[in-house]
Design a protein around this nucleic acid. Structure first.
Lengths: 146, 146
DNA sequence: TTTAATGTCTCTAGCTACTGTAGCTTCAAG
DNA sequence: CTTGAAGCTACAGTAGCTAGAGACATTAAA
């Protein structure tokens, strides 16, 4: 049995975060020692490690709740888990594309900068460019072009 | 001139969020109509769209403040601006590296999931498996560059 | 065995970046 | 001139933690 500190170390999660997870019902209530301190099993460590990995991959706590309940019922088809992961992947790909173009632009600025002044800064342009925009909010752009 | 609702639609930002941005000084105070309603220009739309995309990329509001001030003073000598740009660039490179490795991981999760049961689901498996845990026990925010 | 250090307990408050609510006013269409 | 959507301010609540206070528990050294 592990105390909360050891568990946190083993899973790479801070102690208050573990208590927080318990509080919001993401982790079950822990057993207590005679002195009222939380005690954790190996299974609890696995569960917490799962949570940490999922957080690192950008899953929300709600998504993780779903994944946990899915993993508690291993006989069902995994379409739901797959969908959650795919949504996450799509999100990351969007971010990668936009970050890459912002990087190019900032790089260009820094290079220009070596010479003295920043002429025609396009940082805002790059990030306000609707062609890179996943969701289409363009319906009012025609109006603004006049 | 756009009202706040039109602006929000055009930029893909909710109306209360725009007011919030003004409140914290990220956006300048808007002009007001005779009836005290906010009015926005095309320039304001660009600025807000920029903010939205930067937020989607994971920049903090403070970082966005810096980027905005960078683009607001393109004629100034570069010394200060250069530092901001370089800092943001370094930040972007860290994010890119991290996102790229997350993408690999998520892809691996999704690929083998087609039609299986949860018992064999890579999504659950990868998140549970400690041996696949490349990161030693560091905090979530820490970078992962090896 | 005493003592000091460290760990854990609960509770509360704070943080960032929003999001929603209540109760009112303004505006544009009919 | 009415009516309904959209605007206003002010304040409360959300996610996902994080930090602090003050008290009790556990452990290792003296």
């Amino acid at each position: 049995m592990l105390t909360i500190g050891k568990l946190g170390q083993a899973a790479g999660v801070k102690v208050p975060t573990i208590r927080y997870y318990e509080q919001i019902g993401l982790l079950p209530e822990a057993e207590r020692s005679a002195g009222n301190q939380r005690l954790y099993s190996r299974k609890a460590l696995d569960r917490l490690t799962f949570v940490r990995h999922a957080r690192e991959l950008g899953f929300t706590l709600d998504a993780i709740r779903d994944l946990l309940s899915l993993s508690d019922h291993p006989d069902q088809p995994c379409a739901a888990a797959d969908a959650i992961a795919k949504a996450q992947l799509a999100e990351i790909e969007k971010r990668l594309a936009r970050l890459a173009s912002l990087k190019v632009e900032l790089n260009r600025m820094v290079v220009q900068c070596a010479g003295g002044k920043i002429a025609d800064c396009r940082v805002i342009e790059v990030l306000s460019d609707h062609s890179l925009c996943a969701t289409d909010h363009r319906h009012l752009q025609d109006e603004k072009d006049h």
